[in-house]
């Protein structure tokens, strides 16, 4: 299974929110830092010489929760208060690694498959534009 953060950032928001709402009543949730938009500076490197430089900034939403005594941090690109909250919640559950872990893992595996399917379909469309130009002398 790929990294949980990847799945939580890339999956559709509706099933993620529904899953978190379902688990929330079983937990004691304390909001340490409400979802808030902040800025991240994106660092890049020239691909030849490895020269580092700043490409530009990106809007990010961050959230911090305490779930059953475990801190969880949620971070994602964009103005995404609900997603950042859900990521923080899932982060805490993954770190707790208690009896709810199998549910969490099942959810992540299900979403991972959906993301992979979406990407593979897009990839298939892109591959239809693959080209092999012939040199004029070859014709």
């Amino acid at each position: 299974m790929q990294q949980a953060d990847y799945i939580l950032c890339e999956c559709a928001l509706a099933p993620l929110e529904a899953f978190v709402r379902e688990l929330e009543p079983q937990c004691t949730v304390q909001v340490i830092r409400h979802p808030a938009v902040v800025i991240t500076m994106i660092r890049a490197e020239d691909s030849v010489e490895g020269q580092p430089f700043y490409l530009g900034e990106a809007l990010v939403t961050e959230c911090e929760l305490n779930v059953d005594g475990q801190a969880g941090f949620g971070l994602c690109l964009g103005d995404e208060p609900v997603r950042s909250y859900c990521i923080a919640f899932m982060d805490a559950l993954l770190l707790l690694a208690d009896g709810r872990l199998p549910w969490v893992q099942a959810f992540l595996e299900e979403q991972e498959a959906l993301i992979a399917d979406r990407l593979q379909t897009e990839h298939a469309h892109i591959q239809r534009t693959k080209v092999d130009f012939k040199l004029m002398e070859e014709e």
């Binding site: 938009v37 902040v38 800025i39 991240t40 500076m41 994106i42 660092r43 890049a44 490197e45 691909s47 580092p52 490409l55 900034e57 990106a58 809007l59 990010v60 961050e62 971070l75 990407l119 990839h123 892109i126 534009t129």
Partner: peptide
């Protein structure tokens, strides 16, 4: 708009070798 927000993070260097290539 950027000036109204706090810069809280610096990313790791992005790697274009990891790109999901569209073109």
């Amino acid at each position: 708009f950027i000036t109204t927000l706090q810069r809280r993070y610096y990313s790791e260097a992005i790697d274009t070798r990891e790109m999901f290539v569209r073109r």
